[in-house]
């Protein structure tokens, strides 16, 4: 039997995109994770992809949002929201109205609180399942999506989730394609009015540029003076390693084998 989604044409996908911020220069840009989300959506065959952004339209954000259009989109829906608003109601209402099968978002925003809560709140409000840390969507058949979730160190886990669902991606998802200037310039930003709810909590918090976190000191709690002396006089780590010269290959191999064992990389 043909997949259900193919009967009525295609899989409706909405990607939530935000305005990113370059970590060094602070310039607006495509948010890295959101761009990966768009790339993931683009890689789905027979998917009809919509871009949705909630926020203010100004010169800085427009350049960043056009970055998404440059990935090959004609338009992007923009829910007009003032700075410091809670975008949850606006986005949720928009999704309820549009009724996509799959919503893809980046894990966290690069500006504002950046708590990564929005997808969870949306999932809770819409009553949809949520899967985080996606690496790929393998297949969508009969309303069930087979997903690959990224585990640390390149490992993957296969999951199945019933649609409609929300999935989030992070740096393990495929790298986004280049944003081309031409489509970015031509694409339309379709501004829609939406309900506004102030984020009262956020206004109360004090925000300041991130301080460098203090490096944790190695505190040696030793019972005896000798142990304390040894700890203080111990060789600093990384100050030149062990060099084996004039050894038989077997000896060298044994030393490497020991290190690999200690590090636990041999399976």
């Amino acid at each position: 039997m043909r997949p259900e989604s193919h009967h009525n044409g295609s899989l409706a996908v909405t990607v939530l995109v935000s305005v990113g911020r370059h970590p060094l220069t602070g310039r607006g840009r495509r948010a890295d994770q959101d761009a990966r989300a768009v790339e993931l959506a683009r890689s789905l065959t027979s998917a009809e992809v919509e871009l949705l952004h909630a926020g203010r339209l100004d010169e800085g954000s427009e350049a960043a949002l056009r970055g998404y259009l440059g990935m090959g989109f004609d338009s992007l829906s923009l829910l007009e929201q003032p700075v410091g608003a809670d975008v949850l109601p606006a986005v949720a209402e928009s999704l309820e109205a549009a009724g996509p099968q799959l919503v893809i978002a980046g894990e966290r925003a690069e500006q504002g609180e950046g708590s990564g809560l929005l997808p969870y709140l949306l999932a809770e409000r819409l009553g949809w399942p949520l899967v985080s840390g996606l690496a790929a969507v393998e297949d969508v058949t009969e309303g069930v999506a087979t997903l690959l979730q990224a585990l640390p160190r390149g490992q993957r886990r296969r999951l199945q989730v019933r649609l409609p669902a929300i999935v989030t991606v992070d740096a393990a998802a495929p790298a986004p394609r280049q944003s081309a200037y031409g489509p970015a310039r031509r694409g339309r930003l379709e501004v829609q009015a939406a309900a506004v709810m102030d984020d009262a909590d956020l206004a109360q918090w004090q925000a300041q540029p991130a301080r460098k976190r203090p490096k944790r000191l190695k505190i040696v709690k030793a019972a005896s003076a000798r142990d304390r002396f040894k700890a203080a006089a111990a060789k600093a780590e990384g100050g030149g390693g062990q060099v084996l010269t004039d050894v038989a290959p077997e000896e060298g191999a044994a030393a490497i084998f020991k290190l690999l064992k200690e590090e636990g990389v041999l399976r």
């Binding site: 911020r21 609180e113 950046g114 925000a207 991130a210």
Partner: peptide, 8 residues
């Protein structure tokens, strides 16, 4: 917050 650039 904000991708590690802001402290709240």
């Amino acid at each position: 917050g904000a991708a590690g650039t802001v402290d709240f």
